[in-house]
Amino acid sequence: MAVLQRSSTYKAEGVVLSRRDLGDADRIVTLFTREFGRRRLVARGSRRPTSQHAPHIELFSRVRLVGGVGATLDVLTQAQNLEAYPRFREDLAAFAAAGWAVELLDGLSEDGEATPDAYAALVAFLGALNQRAADPEPLLSALALSLLDVHGYAPELWQCTVCSRTIEPGAHAFAPRTGGVICSTCSHDNASHPLSVDTLKTLRFIAHEGLTGAARLRADPRTRAELRTALRAYAASVVERDIASAHILERVGAGSAGPAAR
């Protein structure tokens, strides 16, 4: 992993995770970079109408940048937009799904810790989500499972996380606190969310097939709701904070319904 020294400059490719105002004209921009993980940079003057930085640091954009290492925050000196993902400005469900994804990644990340697999997964997800016909929720489920796996938090989907018995089709549930699926016997003593057979099959399918499989998936309303609830609760338990964008996505009711995965 590359180590950045104070006062040095660096080049990187990254995705804009968040922005917040600083003073009268500046912004603090948080990016997840391929080379150096999460970096926080001051984009000086980026709120001015004449700023050269402003068009290149829109939320969720993939950019090429040059930064200078500072004592507390880096300084953005150059930025070039590589991909702006126009669907996110027009489709609230896609925007909320992208927000859900970057909130999770931000919560899983440490400043300066490069995770190339997580970066590649995020970029692939944003590209797939930008397709107008894409259903945001299955793609988001695939990305969430991938990011959790990369960071060592993949949920257990085959054995009860309490008694270790193999999960048999039936009245099983998902327990965020124990890290995955629990059997009907153990579900009585643990805070859990209902998980139908179809939803468990769908979770396993997405975990195995990734974005490619998720793009083909058409889940029924019950499966979608159970997936949404289980993954939001589990992600929140891992990063120890609520995923705010998840509530927007739930209200929007993204995507179409169809038969559950088998």
Rank of each mutant, 00 (worst) to 15 (best):
M1S: 09
G14E: 04
G14W: 05
V15L: 00
V16Q: 02
L17W: 11
R20E: 06
D21H: 06
L22Y: 10
D24V: 03
A25T: 07
V29Q: 06
T30M: 10
T30L: 11
T33M: 09
T33G: 03
R39D: 05
R39E: 07
A43M: 09
R44M: 12
G45M: 12
S46A: 15
T50H: 13
S51M: 04
Q52D: 04
L59Y: 10
V66L: 15
G67V: 02
T72H: 11
L76M: 15
T77W: 08
T77D: 05
Q78K: 15
Q78W: 14
Q78C: 10
Q80F: 08
N81H: 09
A84T: 13
E90D: 09
E90K: 14
D91G: 07
A94C: 11
A97D: 01
A98C: 08
W100M: 05
G107S: 14
L108K: 03
S109T: 02
E110Q: 15
A114L: 11
A121R: 14
V123A: 09
A134E: 02
D135P: 06
S146N: 13
D149N: 08
H151P: 04
G152R: 12
Q159G: 02
T161W: 13
G170I: 04
P176K: 07
G179M: 00
G179T: 00
S184C: 07
S187P: 03
D189R: 13
A191K: 02
S192M: 12
P194K: 05
L195V: 02
S196L: 06
T212D: 10
R216F: 03
A219R: 15
R228I: 01
T229L: 14
T229C: 12
L231C: 05
V238T: 03
A244N: 15
A254W: 04
S256L: 13
G258A: 09
A260F: 02
